[in-house]
Amino acid sequence: MTAGEPGRPQVPGYVHTTGRTETETEIGWSLETLLRVTSSALPLNGPLSSRSHRRLFSDCAGLTSVVEAAAHMRQPVSVVRVLAEELVASGHLAVPTPHHPTRAHDSAPSRELLQEVLDGLRNHEFA
């Protein structure tokens, strides 16, 4: 699961703990989890060559999120999440490392992150 080319972006540890048949809510995977391609040149082989895998991989041409990819693919988030987990495990996709870690036991945003959200909303021009 950890095999990959040197220089490939590090996948956060929680991603490795997420089995594809896991049905419990996993900390770290959510609707808004971000996805980016590691290298668009990586071929999709074997079980990763399904139409759905290829569609998700091409939908991640730029930085996006699980829920946005799902909406564009017209697939349930639950389905796209499984595809995303597989493509992260294979090294095709990566989840960017958050600049503010969330609290371990309940994933609550940190004080610093909440401050950044508030500042962002205050500076944002709504109109």
């Binding site: 808004e32 971000l34 930085l63 999120s65 960017p96 490392t97 600049h99």
Partner: peptide, 14 residues
């Protein structure tokens, strides 16, 4: 806004 997020984004909240 574009379909994709700016490449500089590293965190999402809701």
């Amino acid at each position: 806004a574009g379909r994709y997020l700016p490449d500089t984004v590293t965190q999402s909240v809701k």
